[in-house]
Computed example of a mutant assay.
Amino acid sequence: MTSPENATPLTPRGSMRRVDWETFRRIAADASTTLPIEQTAAWDAFDAAMDGREPWGRLVYQDADGAPRALISLTRMDVRGFPYLWARHAPVWLGAAPSPQEEAELRELVVAGVRVHDPAIVFVRLHFTHPAAGLHELLQTMTYDRTVILDVEREDDEAFLASFKPRGRRDVRKALRNTELTYHDETDIAEEVFAELYEILTETGDRDGFRAAPEDTYRTMLRTLGPEHCRLYVARRGGQEALAWSIDTIWGDGAARYYAASTAEGRRGRAADALLYKEGCWLRQRGVRTWDLMGAGSERVPELDGVGSFKAKFTPAGAVDIPGAWDVPVRPRIYAGLVRALELKHRAQAGVSAVRERLAALRTTSAAEPEQ
């Protein structure tokens, strides 16, 4: 794609201004908008506690009449020693969905402001609905542009279960009949149990093809967000061995199933299914109305097809489209250099893997040949 500097510039009709948290929060409240937790002061504490991350600032995009149109909270991070900004799950648009022109204008205003206030920044990562020149696939991480969102505002637990697809109800009820399986809110003992749970996460990553973050990332998340905004739920066999677990974040009446993992046994016995049902019931009791299961497969991200299929059985609505994340270069030449460096790294890694596979095949062949 072409860079923003090569695209036809828009004549800005709106404006951008920096604001403090209280102003940011009030604007969202006035618009009856529940912010993603990553856009809140609670997330600032998590960012501040992590190496290589820090809150950068909050912006309000205003229309031509000066009315707030979108909210953006940015975190300063780095890749290969080069700083960038990430507005996780933002811009948060207020009111109607944005037009392509509004998204383009917002991008130009953000990039122009960052060049002035923090010229070391190489790119800004923002979430957009409309494809456009100047939007690049992410460096070194995966986004998603479809997800599954459950409505947990029901009369009772049975009504919540009844809202699932037939396959989802069947799998949950099958697990609930297994009296060996027990389900627990272990938020208050997270620090002492998480070592066991992290082993399950690494097993899940090996099985599903992803690399877990360092264990301290999850511990820091639970500690800094605190029990009001972050819960740990676990399924166990006989109240002892952990089979499945999840971390849910909460802000206002919204929640997100941020991380989840299960053992092979937990999957076979549907402990993961029943845990999802149980935690939805517990979240409803905490005032949650909408629950984002975070990520499903799409044309852009087919790697999530399998996990998306699992999540979709818990609602007839299936997956829905949401804005995916894109990199927007602020310093295009340096960004292009980063892209080339990562491409060379991936090619080198692929070459090493191919050599190792050939050597392994030769060893196997040699071992299989009879001695003369």
Rank of each mutant, 00 (worst) to 15 (best):
residue 333 R to L: 15
residue 331 R to W: 04
residue 292 D to I: 00
residue 337 G to K: 03
residue 293 L to A: 07
residue 289 R to F: 02
residue 307 V to Q: 06
residue 281 C to N: 08
residue 351 G to F: 05
residue 309 S to Q: 14
residue 350 A to V: 02
residue 337 G to Y: 02
residue 335 Y to G: 07
residue 306 G to C: 11
residue 316 P to Q: 10
residue 280 G to H: 05
residue 345 K to P: 04
residue 333 R to Y: 08
residue 304 L to E: 06
residue 347 R to G: 05
residue 314 F to T: 02
residue 325 A to W: 02
residue 313 K to T: 11
residue 317 A to W: 08
residue 322 I to E: 00
residue 321 D to E: 14
residue 313 K to R: 15
residue 333 R to V: 15
residue 312 A to S: 15
residue 323 P to V: 09
residue 284 R to S: 11
residue 310 F to H: 12
residue 347 R to N: 10
residue 285 Q to N: 13
residue 345 K to I: 10
residue 348 A to C: 09
residue 313 K to A: 09
residue 324 G to S: 04
residue 284 R to H: 14
residue 315 T to N: 09
residue 347 R to C: 08
residue 285 Q to P: 02
residue 305 D to Y: 14
residue 320 V to M: 04
residue 308 G to M: 08
residue 295 G to S: 12
residue 302 P to H: 08
residue 286 R to F: 07
residue 325 A to H: 03
residue 337 G to C: 10
residue 308 G to V: 06
residue 341 A to H: 07
residue 303 E to G: 03
residue 350 A to D: 09
residue 355 V to W: 13
residue 281 C to I: 03
residue 286 R to N: 03
residue 343 E to L: 12
residue 297 G to I: 10
residue 342 L to G: 07
residue 339 V to N: 06
residue 322 I to Q: 01
residue 280 G to K: 00
residue 299 E to M: 06
residue 326 W to V: 10
residue 333 R to T: 14
residue 309 S to Y: 12
residue 279 E to Q: 14
residue 339 V to D: 02
residue 301 V to I: 13
residue 291 W to R: 00
residue 282 W to E: 14
residue 313 K to N: 07
residue 306 G to P: 11
residue 324 G to E: 00
residue 307 V to A: 05
residue 286 R to E: 08
residue 311 K to N: 14
residue 329 P to L: 07
residue 316 P to C: 11
residue 308 G to I: 06
residue 323 P to Q: 04
residue 331 R to Q: 13
residue 294 M to V: 14
residue 332 P to W: 03
residue 279 E to R: 14
residue 353 S to Y: 10
residue 296 A to H: 10
residue 299 E to L: 13
residue 300 R to H: 14
residue 282 W to M: 06
residue 335 Y to H: 09
residue 337 G to L: 05
residue 315 T to S: 12
residue 295 G to W: 03
residue 323 P to W: 05
residue 346 H to Q: 15
residue 278 K to D: 04
residue 292 D to N: 13
residue 331 R to C: 01
residue 325 A to I: 04
residue 331 R to V: 11
residue 350 A to S: 10
residue 275 L to E: 04
residue 325 A to Q: 03
residue 354 A to G: 02
residue 347 R to D: 13
residue 292 D to T: 02
residue 285 Q to E: 15
residue 315 T to F: 05
residue 353 S to K: 15
residue 313 K to W: 00
residue 312 A to H: 00
residue 275 L to H: 06
residue 352 V to K: 12
residue 321 D to K: 09
residue 281 C to G: 12
residue 290 T to P: 00
residue 288 V to Y: 03
residue 344 L to M: 11
residue 340 R to A: 15
residue 323 P to E: 09
residue 329 P to W: 03
residue 298 S to L: 09
residue 343 E to P: 07
residue 287 G to F: 03
residue 340 R to I: 08
residue 342 L to R: 13
residue 314 F to Q: 00
residue 335 Y to S: 09
residue 338 L to Y: 04
residue 352 V to C: 04
residue 317 A to F: 05
residue 325 A to E: 08
residue 302 P to L: 09
residue 341 A to Q: 12
residue 336 A to W: 08
